[in-house]
Amino acid sequence: MANWGFLGAGSIARSSLAPAVRAAKGAVLHAVASSSHVRAQALRPERAYPSYDDLLRDPDVDIVYIALHNSAHIEWTRRALRAGKHVLCEKPLGLSAAEVDAMTRTAREAGRLLIEAAWNRWHPRTRDLETMIDGGSIGAVQTVTARFDGLEPTADNYRLNPNLGGGALYDVGYYAVSAALAAFGWNTPQVVWAKQEQWHPASADSASDFLLEFPCRGTAQIHCALIGRMAEELVVTGTSGTLSLSSPAFCAGATSVRLFTGSDSDWQARSYPALDSYRLMVDAMDAAVEGRGHPYLVSPQQSRLIAATIDAVREALPSHSLPDTEPPKQNRRRG
């Protein structure tokens, strides 16, 4: 039996992780630490702490879930690991490849497990998509089109603040980048061009568009935004066929979804019922910590490549800010 401790009691912890831990076999929501006692108690833990350090000193906590804003991930992940806890940290694991390197080094030194909470990677459709691509079901991948439009953050949301790791690229863009890298076998891409828009000059990015090129393989066209409308699309085209996902392409779970595969003359669909991918993630983390079986886990190498790719996109922006010119017309697509 694994005792879970949460650092933070915000919306994701409340709506997704706490219910998943309560539903998982053998998992216990032992403790929650939050500056708000009311929010901590709302998750119904066995213990509520007023500070994160208090929770890390609790000897009964086995796994710490980091549910803090993105810029706090590195500090509190490393503190939790050094306190002897296994860690499941919200995505993005780090705000750069250097941060991910530091975190994984600390996990190795502490002899503890560190996993990025990319919950959609545990969905059976995501697993099938990667297996089919790896098995050559559509031949060699040539192009990926990925789009994730999400709701605009409220005025007090950290996603507006670049100093807290906010912005569309780190938030919804993470899913699209991860899907593109998986489609191309987790090889390192080059950024052909990138552009961003902002809510206002001092804010994080409200939208990001970029083109990734995988040398001797193909390209991935990616669009991500937090401007009010909802859209999730993923299309992977290979030399002998195409794979596409019904919406929501990345955040499936609460509704039934499908995976389409085929060509112009022959399309087939696989259907997946509604399920809780957060529960699957918690089950896998519990099993890994307790040494049961061989659960699927997101690898540290993949987490690092995602971070390194986002680094490269940011570096490709003219002056690391809004571009002065539009990208080449032959490459321009909103999705």
Rank of each mutant, 00 (worst) to 15 (best):
G5F: 04
G10K: 03
A13L: 04
R14D: 12
A20T: 04
A20G: 05
A20C: 01
K25L: 11
G26Q: 08
V28H: 07
A31T: 04
H37W: 06
V38H: 08
R39T: 13
R39M: 11
R39Q: 11
P45M: 02
A48P: 07
P50L: 08
D53I: 10
D54N: 10
D54I: 15
R57L: 13
D60W: 09
D62P: 03
L68Y: 15
H69N: 10
N70S: 09
S71T: 09
A72M: 15
I74T: 15
R79W: 03
A80G: 15
V87C: 04
E90H: 10
S96E: 08
A98E: 12
D101F: 00
A102S: 13
E109A: 05
A110T: 08
A110L: 04
G111P: 02
R112F: 09
R112G: 09
R121M: 09
W122R: 10
L129C: 10
E130L: 06
R147H: 08
F148Q: 13
F148W: 08
L151W: 14
P153D: 03
P162W: 10
F184W: 05
V191I: 10
E197F: 14
P201S: 09
E213L: 00
C216S: 07
T219Y: 01
A220L: 01
L226W: 11
I227K: 11
E233V: 06
L243M: 02
P248M: 06
A249H: 00
S256F: 13
L259S: 14
L259M: 10
S265C: 09
S265V: 15
Y272D: 12
A274R: 12
S277N: 07
S277M: 14
R279L: 06
A284I: 11
M285Y: 08
Q301G: 12
I306M: 03
A307P: 00
A307F: 00
T309G: 00
A312E: 01
A312G: 05
L317W: 00
P318D: 06
H320D: 02
P323F: 08
P323S: 12
P327Q: 04
R332F: 10
R333V: 12
R334H: 13
